[in-house]
């Protein structure tokens, strides 16, 4: 079953008088349960594509379906609801709400979904244990390292059992050892939970972990490699 069906996506930005083509006729199909890495140099369009897949941005043209839902037919509120119920995010940095503890950060999305207090806190503790942070549950982001914060973000992304987890340069601010641990964790959870992961990165360690590698250049997909 296809998790992502992107057809002829186009997106351009204005930079001064110049017209920059961020996505140029991108077509991509990703099956459910895949572990995909979008690779490419800065400005290649991988973050723009990730934003499209995350219903955070809209293409100028093309068609996009995620888990069977037509994203381009949705208004802003519907896209917000779609993100809440179908997607999980791990960003490059500053992933967490700084006034909430690790447990509250994980439970926050569950609460937005309407889950009861006891159930969501229990689930948050479970996922913090899954990412090896059981003893950090009561700490706030500024009391944790960058790697620990990224693992909390992974726990938050997975706790709500999303169809798709999107990660934008998740290892960019981590040392290589911590970055490798994070990738191992995501890979492990992908295999165990069957959740689809799409990661935008130019980190060689992340690229090496891909089961499907999509390489982009100047807004176009230049290679697609199944491993």
């Amino acid at each position: 079953m296809a998790m992502i069906e992107a057809e002829h996506l186009r997106k351009h930005y204005r930079s001064g008088d110049a017209r920059v083509m961020a996505l140029d006729d991108v077509c991509l199909t990703i099956e459910a349960g895949a572990f995909v890495v979008l690779a490419g140099r800065s400005g290649s369009g991988k973050t723009t594509l990730l934003n499209m897949l995350g219903a955070l941005d809209r293409p100028d043209a093309g068609a996009l379906r995620i888990a069977g839902h037509d994203l381009l037919a949705m208004n802003a509120d519907e896209r917000a609801a779609f993100r809440l119920h179908h997607l999980g995010f791990v960003f490059q940095a500053y992933n967490l709400i700084r006034v909430l503890s690790a447990r509250e950060n994980v439970a926050y999305v569950l609460q937005l979904r309407g889950m009861g207090r006891r159930e969501r806190l229990s689930l948050a503790d479970h996922w913090l244990a899954e990412v090896g942070l059981a003893e950090f549950a009561d700490r706030r982001p500024d009391q944790m390292s960058g790697g620990q914060q990224q693992r909390v973000a992974v726990a938050r992304a997975l706790a709500a059992k999303p169809d798709l987890v999107l990660a934008d340069e998740p290892t960019a601010n981590l040392d290589s050892h911590t970055g490798a641990e994070l990738i191992d964790l995501m890979r492990h959870l992908n295999e165990r939970e069957g959740t689809t992961f799409v990661i935008a990165s130019h980190d060689p360690a992340v690229i090496a972990s891909a089961r499907m590698l999509v390489t982009m250049q100047d807004g176009r997909i230049v290679s697609l490699e199944e491993r």
Binding site: A76, Y94, V109
Partner: peptide, 11 residues
């Protein structure tokens, strides 16, 4: 932070 919240699904 507001961007993050919006990304997570806060309307």
């Amino acid at each position: 932070e507001f961007g993050l919240m919006a990304a997570l699904g806060v309307r």
